[in-house]
Design a protein around this nucleic acid. Structure first.
Length: 270
DNA sequence: CTTATTCCCTGATTGC
DNA sequence: TGCAATCAGGGAATAA
């Protein structure tokens, strides 16, 4: 499940390969993936135009197109972006194919069809309500304290709220809370200043560490060039039910918060 | 405004 | 072994 570190890795991988490449042909196989226009209009407004830049905001990938449009992709649960030669074997679950003018294809694949595409002129129509980037200067302890102090929901649920801070999802929220020694069920407004400081620092440390490992491959995530990430090898709790906590050897437990599986160490996160 | 629940979707896993 | 039921979960929609 691509979260901020995975999308950042995908973006960095694509930047090396497809800047200034032009779309020569597009084939949309799952039309419902396009959120705001028809497949025909999507084709007409992209083919012949060039990718000038690729950026990331939260879990969204943003392609800056030469006609001042933005192709925005959210991979949701199982989406992936693959770069292959046009003549290479097709990939399973391909939902949209973008032919480029250098003989390569950018393929949007997604087993569960949750991933979405937008083509817009105003990026804020899609990402306008996102909270700050956790690795940007707008995200700091004061901001975190102010936001959490008005929320009574479990801190795990609030950390995953994209309106509060953008890009943290289920598995990195679990890792961040473990690193900060905070139980995921704690009410967000109950954290002490000491805990808020640690939560802030660990948010940055966990995300930067995961980016340095090119994201986590827990199911089928891979970079566009086909490399798996290795961040999962350094996880303390996420997807480690009944395995030992690396700091205290206690067995990792799994509970449900807001219908999402939540992993934590009962000893480190009392 | 908030929090809680349901839905979308399909491969993998569980249960009888 | 076989087939149905359940699970996984990001974010939108809906309910309260």
């Amino acid at each position: 499940m691509p979260e901020l570190p995975e999308v950042e890795t995908i973006k960095n991988d694509l930047l090396l390969e497809i800047i200034d490449r032009r779309f020569t042909k597009i084939n949309v196989l799952w039309e419902k993936a396009i959120q705001n226009l028809s497949a025909g209009e999507f084709y007409r407004r992209l083919v012949g135009h060039t990718i000038k830049d690729i950026t990331r905001r939260g879990k969204y990938l943003i392609f800056h197109i030469s006609n001042d449009a933005f192709l925005i992709i959210h991979l949701r649960m199982t989406g992936s972006i693959l770069l292959k030669r046009i003549d290479s074997d097709p990939d399973p679950y391909t939902r949209a194919v973008f032919d480029l003018d250098n003989g390569m294809q950018m393929r949007f694949c997604d087993v569960r069809k949750f991933g979405v595409l937008y083509l817009v002129n105003d990026v804020n129509s899609v990402i306008g309500k996102l909270g700050p980037e956790p690795l940007g200067s707008d995200f700091n302890v004061r901001f975190l304290r102010q936001q959490l102090s008005k929320r009574t929901a479990p801190v795990k649920a609030v950390l995953c709220d994209q309106h509060l801070v953008a890009g943290i999802g289920n598995m990195y929220a679990d890792e961040i809370l473990h690193a900060a020694h905070i139980n995921p069920l704690r009410k967000a407004d109950s954290l002490t200043d000491k805990e808020l400081n640690l939560l802030y620092k660990m948010t940055i440390r966990v995300l930067e560490s995961a980016i340095s490992h090119k994201g986590a491959t827990v199911r089928d995530y891979q970079t566009p060039s086909g490399q798996p990430g290795t961040a999962q090898n350094f996880f303390s709790v996420a997807h480690r039910l009944n395995k030992k906590c690396p700091t205290c050897n206690t067995l990792i437990k799994r509970i449900r918060i807001r219908n999402r599986g939540t992993y934590f160490c009962p000893h480190c996160q009392p």
